[in-house]
Design a binder for these strands. Structure first.
Lengths: 333, 333
DNA sequence: CTGAAAGCGCTTACAG
DNA sequence: CTGAAAGCGCTTACAG
């Protein structure tokens, strides 16, 4: 049995489809016969009528749909963001479609293409490496776009990110103030502004404290081999001289914790740990981890707010918004 | 500037929209003038034409879209499932829409309603408590539906689940064989078949080994207060007499590990641990956790396969498929 | 080899 | 107070 359409209701009620449409959308209520309206509504309920959004969208040229393109939906940071964005969009009458680019620019491109064909009203994107031109092409089609998490330099585009440089600077300073002098940093071998800024914050902190910057202590991991390369790096680090590790991502920290939990090292006395972002694992490690907590809620909410403003009201000025992270003190320093 | 439509291309090429449609869809290639076809394709590329899927869907009455309704997208088990299902659906030319019901039947109902209005072609659902009638209503609209993870008793519906009863029986037997006799089980205060079957497996194992079933050792947690109630339960359990804990969900285990990592108890000597499902946290605990690994990949793939079969080929027989889990031996027993 | 026309399920300006 | 008609962007059976 086919789904009921407005036409079925019209026939059954002996009225025109226009009238059915008006009644079901509560339009011109004041000049439609109350009896007729009531009858139409009853028949609609009886037939379990559900408006076909596809048809509505074709007419209105609006799908009330927003695409969220993340780099990796399996990352707990990302899934938290997705959760909040979903709440926000649905509160505002939009539906969220989620795509995961798996840190792959080609997949990002395909997703954008797919979502455009499906006529999404706007995009919230956490760009991947080397995706500048893809994003640029999208923006040129006049599609509303807001970037989160990962800024792109020198691009006229709305973005909402955290203070990656400053908070990393503060975190490393915190380590220094606790007497740590041989601080290694783990990051990804990736051309991403947010990661680069975190490393720069680290460097600046050392420099300002006149600590020698040993390039061997800046460890760049190949993302696809996170686990094995982190293991190897820890093996090769001289843990007798290294007294602190700073991780620019929770995935890196998790990999390191797996390794460290097999070693006999006193934390934080012999080795202090600080990481970006959170994970359930951090509370279960020998000592709870000191970590940098991004204002996920603020970032996510603002992204939705800004995007919907842009959708409903073109020609707004570009905004680059920065919300500050905070350092959550655990017992690993 | 508006997006280019088939009509724009037709005008620019001086042909009919029908011809444009045929060319872009590679239909009747053998009887369309090669030159004309080439010209049309060039103009389409030049105008950056992207077919409007909304219009296509209205015509074809098919959206090539599948809804996945999970209970909690933040659960690592769920996000893994979502990831694999997404891969499978996109491989087969479908797009996945994800909705999270947050274990709330009212929200599940709203999501179903929303997705139906958006004309999804089918549903994969992990039902929440008390959602039998909601699911039933959906099935009665002839919508293709496949259940995963959580079976519903006495319902004619396709489902793909794991052997909850048997694997729990085996896991508890494993504890018993290791000499454990005072085994407590943690589960949720929820009317869900999968959880009930896990508890039944536990009971049967004790019974078959003629171990007295102490009802105080069956601990039902209120999900919204998982952390605090698990803490309280562990405080109240006599850990001198209890020698093993069995968790029916990873969330329960995580909550317990947080508590246990603050206590001075030898694991597994004084207390053994086994849990359902996985978490990054399990590798980082003092000892890696022995846990039950569900065949997520098999379940997810089959769910997509079955659903698409049902979409493209109505009147298939109902299938209730069970895939076996396995016990992953860690060092917590 | 190509085009005119109907129709998918809606909305809405207009006429009466 | 109500309805006929156009149109959103496509596809496709049919005619020529």
């Amino acid at each position: 049995m086919k789904r009921a359409s407005i036409k079925d209701i019209a026939e059954k009620a002996g009225v025109s489809i226009a009238l059915v449409s008006y009644v079901l959308n509560d339009k011109f209520v004041n000049r439609i016969n109350k009896e007729t309206a009531k009858k139409i509504k009853e028949i609609a309920a009886e037939l379990n009528y559900k408006p076909n959004k596809i048809a509505q969208s074709l007419k209105s040229n609006k799908t009330n749909t927003i695409a969220l393109l993340v780099a990796d939906i399996a990352n707990p940071f990302t899934s938290q963001v997705a959760r909040i964005i979903e709440d926000e969009t649905s509160k505002r009458g939009y539906m969220l479609l989620i795509g995961s680019s798996d840190e792959n620019e080609e997949k990002l491109k395909q997703l954008i293409d797919l979502f455009q064909k499906r006529q999404v009203d706007g995009f919230i994107i956490a760009p991947v490496e080397n995706s500048e031109s893809i994003i640029n092409n999208l923006v040129e089609t006049k599609a509303p776009v807001v970037l989160i998490d990962r800024p792109i330099d020198n691009m006229e585009i709305d973005s909402i990110v955290t203070n990656n440089f400053e908070i990393s600077y503060q975190a490393v300073n915190y380590l220094i103030n606790k007497g740590k002098k041989n601080i290694a940093i783990f990051s990804y071998k990736k051309n991403l502004e947010n990661l680069k800024n975190r490393v720069e914050g680290y460097k600046k902190a050392l420099k300002d404290s006149k600590i020698y910057l040993d390039s061997e202590k800046i460890i760049y991991i190949e993302e696809s081999k996170t686990q094995s390369e982190v293991y190897k790096a820890i093996d090769e680090l001289n843990l007798m001289t290294t007294d602190a590790l700073f991780f620019t991502s929770n995935k890196l920290a998790i990999a390191a914790l797996k390794k460290l939990s097999t070693l006999d090292i006193k934390i934080p006395e012999e080795l202090a740990l600080v990481t970006f972002d959170e994970s359930e694992a951090f509370d279960i490690f020998r000592v709870p981890l000191t970590h940098i907590k991004q204002p996920i809620k603020k970032i996510s909410k603002k992204a939705v707010e800004l995007l919907i403003e842009k959708i409903e009201n073109t020609n707004l000025l570009q905004q680059q918004i920065v919300y500050n992270s905070e350092i959550i003190i655990g017992k690993s320093v």
